[in-house]
Design a protein around this nucleic acid. Structure first.
Lengths: 214, 214
DNA sequence: TTATCATGTTGCCGTTGGCAACATGGGCCC
DNA sequence: GGGCCCATGTTGCCAACGGCAACATGATAA
């Protein structure tokens, strides 16, 4: 078993027959390539070339091209879950935590656009066909669910129709993230890349206003 | 010039060398096939077969497979624009019209899932590479923009940060539509297909509450 | 040292998007 | 009404793709 340092050395020297980190390298290369091209539908051969191996090498680590993309998505959902949790800690009130988690969702999408695209691309549907994917996605959604319930518990948010509140929140941030990542805010609705998070915060605050107990 | 009846006759008799409606037939077949499979990435040959022609025939009407998908998207955006306008007329107040337009957006996605998927798939990005696509998408967004401005004009909605209000609205309905079409509302957040529109209406009402002038 | 086997390679296959060359037949002109 | 024209269909081909099989390499453990 090579140590991590050993692997780095091998990787840096390059040109070795055995890569040492190929699975990780492929996942990272795929995320980067998708982020760069903006298209999920990229040749597996290109990803392999970026990782410095032949195209068939990928099949030692993944059952199919889709399985590689699924791994990108799983890691993406794990990172998203972490981002939502980290974002929530920035809020000072139950509503504030929900708002900041929403902002973090959009921040994640802007930060890892390749992963975000894969996570919600139709190529991986249904999630249940890839082990771990549905669970990873569920974990991320659960963070929002928990924050809404905590808001209700603190009597800050209205208590009727909890799932509508969760869905509204998710839909809002997901929609914003999608539109920002795809750069699909056209014409007079255009926002600069730096304005994305600010807009997201404003939008989240207004939704949470509507969700408030009264 | 054959009349429309003539064309229908030719089409029904089948087996003719000249199809008569091929462009429309290909667009409709593509929408249907995508709706059925749930994947935008379908073989052009399958679409051609559904239309009863060989695969190469499509190139008499479209520059590429992507151009065919773009045409599906253009017609989708036109239908979406009409649906938003029709939905808006159901509302009895400025806020109500905005809410109903949002519900109509989700209704469109559930009604023409194939078109909806294509319209927002990364395969067509950027829209500007296909003539008419960016304009058609812009038209649809403009309906929401107009409704928000009318709400502000009637002093029903807050007047600061108009684009944040437009974006919130679009993001909310777009996010809901995406999640419903992809059947991605998992576990305890699952909603039945009939509940989709009802949930959308509740969510829109709550967002509009947050957008209200006070 | 040496054998094993995980992990890499090359070579091949069927399918795909797309082009070129040919076939058909509907509509216009005389 | 007859015959030409060319829009619109066809078949045949190609390179690139995802994936499989057979072979090559070399890290590890006896």
């Amino acid at each position: 078993m090579a140590t991590a340092d050993e692997r780095v050395r091998l990787k840096k020297e390059g040109g070795r027959y055995h890569h040492g980190h190929l699975k990780d390298a492929l996942v990272l290369a795929a995320e980067k390539a998708i982020a760069k091209s903006g298209h999920v539908d990229l040749p597996l051969r290109d990803v392999a070339r970026l990782a410095g191996v032949s195209h068939a090498a990928a099949y030692r680590h993944f059952d199919s091209k889709a399985a590689l993309l699924a791994e990108v998505a799983v890691r993406g959902f794990q990172a998203l879950t972490a981002a939502l949790q980290a974002g929530a800690t920035k809020g000072r009130s139950p509503e504030g935590r929900l708002v900041e988690a929403g902002v973090a969702y959009v921040g994640f999408a802007l930060d890892q656009p390749g992963a975000f695209r894969v996570m919600f691309d139709s190529a991986l549907k249904p999630f249940t066909q890839f082990p771990g994917l549905a669970e990873a996605a569920f974990e991320a959604l659960s963070v929002l669910h928990r924050l809404v319930k905590e808001g209700i518990g603190a009597e800050a948010l209205r208590s009727d129709d909890v799932s509508a509140s969760v869905m509204s929140t998710w839909a809002l941030v997901h929609g914003q993230a999608t539109l920002l990542v795809d750069d699909q805010l056209m014409g007079p609705f255009e926002v600069g890349p730096d304005d994305g998070l600010a807009s997201a915060r404003v939008a989240m605050r207004r939704l949470v206003d509507g969700l408030k107990a009264r």
